[in-house]
Write a protein that binds this DNA or RNA. Structure first.
Length: 111
DNA sequence: TGTTTGACGCTCC
DNA sequence: AGGAGCGCCAAAC
């Protein structure tokens, strides 16, 4: 008799990694999501730090749009020099940071 | 098996 | 407005 899975465990055979990757790949150019959004969309509500943990380990040459993930305050969470890379990529997609912040009301992606 | 660790988030003040 | 404090949660050790 299998036990009830934890409330936050979406499916036993699909890893958080795969789920996060899938959602990340689906974020449109020119839009952003928060770490919390990313985790929630992947099936892990309140696991914002998990999203960060996974993003942190992405290979440097990944093609996934890691730069479209910022914190809930609209700020870049990476330490330098990553922050500069991220800002550059965002601006390249038309997302301008004012006072170091992205206008979330305008660019936050909510499917 | 228990503890530590974050590219976090929310509430106070 | 901006910082301190605390909660959160799965991965790494």
């Amino acid at each position: 008799m299998p036990v009830e899975p934890p409330f936050n465990a979406p499916e036993t055979n699909s890893s958080a990694l795969a789920r996060i990757y899938r959602v990340l790949a689906s974020i449109p150019s020119g839009r952003v999501v928060t770490y919390g959004d990313l985790a929630e969309m992947a099936g892990y509500p309140r696991a914002a730090r998990l999203a960060g943990q996974i993003l942190r380990k992405l290979p440097k040459d990944t093609k996934l749009p890691w730069h479209r993930v910022i914190n809930a305050q609209g700020r870049i969470s990476l330490p330098e020099p990553g922050a500069s890379r991220q800002r550059k990529r965002l601006e390249h997609e038309g997302i301008i940071l004012l006072k170091g912040r992205v206008d979330m009301a305008k660019y936050r992606w909510k499917p």
